[in-house]
Design a protein around this nucleic acid. Structure first.
Lengths: 202, 202, 202, 202
DNA sequence: AATGAATGAGAGTTCATTCAT
DNA sequence: AATGAATGAACTCTCATTCAT
């Protein structure tokens, strides 16, 4: 009993090791510039070994993507129980950015790199990436119903708010080095606050 | 006097020819898919010839980047003569997005890909990329002074507004395929309108 | 007494299992396309296990070759009891071709590919491949003695007749696709008949 | 004028060099076992260089095949002007074998190796390989018309005679080492003579 | 006896780049 | 000024084989 379990654990460790290093590389160099050999060098195994755990390069990529979307969705779920819709909407935005800042690699994989979704052929993976957006739209609808925000086309508002937080996230991830560390959180929190407080009716 | 000038002129023509075709290729096929041979085919010279005018492939790349920033700055300048500061601020945002949508590959080069700016070692190039941001901040200051928008830390507001348009731009460029073509402009214009109208005080 | 014998028997079973499946693969997919993993999959053991019974891939190959020559010899023996020498000679040819057509991959192994025989270093294997030729020559001699065919150098006649059937066999194996299936047997039987009937004196 | 001609000549030399060495390798090792690097080693150029002259590996192969079939056809044409049909038929066979013995590499390429014709997708190449067979059939028809050989289905007779010479050719090429050199020509000539003289009616 | 894990060598091909002319 | 010829390094992926257990 012990042996097969240890082997399974070791196998999972190996998979995790590969995924971790591969992700770093994908982020650092972009999908096309990541080679199996580079991953192999990082994990200090031969390139061939990787093929024992993954069918090919794209399978590594999609594994990462799936993990990322799942984690992302879970983080968004965590604010769904806030009763006041406008507080919930604000929390939505903050938790979005928090996820991005805490998991910049995942975030980049999901929303910045080219290949991911574009090349995803499996439609069930699409679901994974849209269900979070549906949460946002539902929240906006409730804000409108409660008279917290001006009525308008839901798609428009959702896109606008998503753009705002996505913009903050990507600028921080990609150009954050332009902002001194202690200043970053201040910038993020206050800018989102500033704009939300305009959108939300008193 | 005539000969050396003609030679210099021919040289500049050649450089322009190479950059033009390289740019088209970037736009059509994206960074990864531009090869020296493809550029050579387009300009109808041998690949070797390109090396007479550019040290290597990345030099072409950085030249393009510089051009991109210049173009970008110019596009932003075009709205500076609008007298009303809050109208000018809105125009600022719209022209920003317009540039991004019309030059998605440039935009990607400038603000999405890692390499370019990071590797731009020449500090004068940095200026190129920050002076546009300075325009924005100046505009916001004037809005505050005119009482159009709530007073706050300029850096905060600038970052927030930049995030919004940058978010719209990148989502459209990278995930625009999720939105049907005729719907895109509607989405862009109205979402920015919706959020700005909250920010701007009546 | 029982244990070591059972072990030996099991070992022989395993060897036979491997050779059988390897042979099927050879027949189905041709020499180049047989891989150790494919054999392993077929026998439902790991690839490593094969190495417990065979030094390497080529050893499997040579074992198969030996089996092929034995089978071939046996098929030729089957016509030795025909009393009339000229009928026996004709039967010789037919059974030769029949073997080739029924075991094209064996035939290819034995007579078309370079490697096998050339690399068969064990002289006893050579015997295996020449004793069949000796049968043919003996038969021709008897035909001459009985006045069925024109007298001549035995080596010449043997070589001629072997060439004929070998030619038919290889053309059918390598270029048989040029001939529609139902037509093949007709072609084989009648062409050999036509030429033999010229050679055999009435 | 001289320069471009010299360059063209050098280019042709290079093509010939590649083809020559590639052919040897194809024969020695079989299509699958020939690698671009092996060819490169032989010609003492880098592997990349080969791609300057041939699109890919298969283009090298088909070039060789085309040359071979053309040469083969020409050799067969050379006996067409013999007036007596039965002499011509015999000459046909002899020139066939002569071609095979003088160009064993080409012969193997055309009729022994797997890949060639099978993988030829261009139908015009097929013509190249069947027109020679048509010559043979025409000759056989004339023999029958002239009463030199027994009447029968042309396809049958053609296939039989082709098999004979093909068998001789392949045995000599592939197993010729079993026969001492001075004895080979004797064997070839007399065996074909022996069998033909049976087929041809006195 | 059997195997999962691991690997070096090698396949065809493309790339940016250099060199001699 | 321009180029044809050439190349080393790199790519993904598969193979036969070995080793520790």
């Amino acid at each position: 009993m012990g042996i097969s379990e240890r082997k399974e654990r070791e196998k999972q460790d190996m998979i995790k090791l590969i995924l971790d290093e591969a992700m770093k590389l994908f982020i650092e160099e972009g999908y096309e510039n990541v080679t199996m050999r580079k991953i192999a060098d990082r994990i200090e195994y031969s390139a061939t070994t990787i093929y024992l755990y993954f069918k090919d390069k794209s399978e590594i990529f999609y594994s990462l993507l799936k993990i990322a979307f799942d984690k992302f969705y879970e983080s968004q779920l965590s604010v769904q129980n806030i009763p006041d819709p406008k507080e919930r909407l604000m929390a939505h935005g903050l938790v979005y950015i928090k996820f991005a800042m805490n998991n910049p690699n995942y975030y980049e994989l999901m929303f910045i790199l080219d290949d991911p979704v574009t090349k995803m052929n499996c439609p069930e993976d699409w679901q994974t990436s849209t269900r979070t957006y549906d949460l946002l739209k539902k929240n906006i609808q409730e804000c409108m119903d409660a008279g917290c925000i001006e009525k308008a086309d839901i798609e428009v508002v959702a896109f606008g708010l998503w753009s705002l937080v996505h913009g903050i996230a990507t600028l921080m991830i990609k150009r954050g080095f332009m902002v001194p560390e202690p200043f970053r959180e201040y910038l993020i929190y206050n800018s989102i606050q500033y704009i939300f407080s305009g959108v939300i009716m008193k």
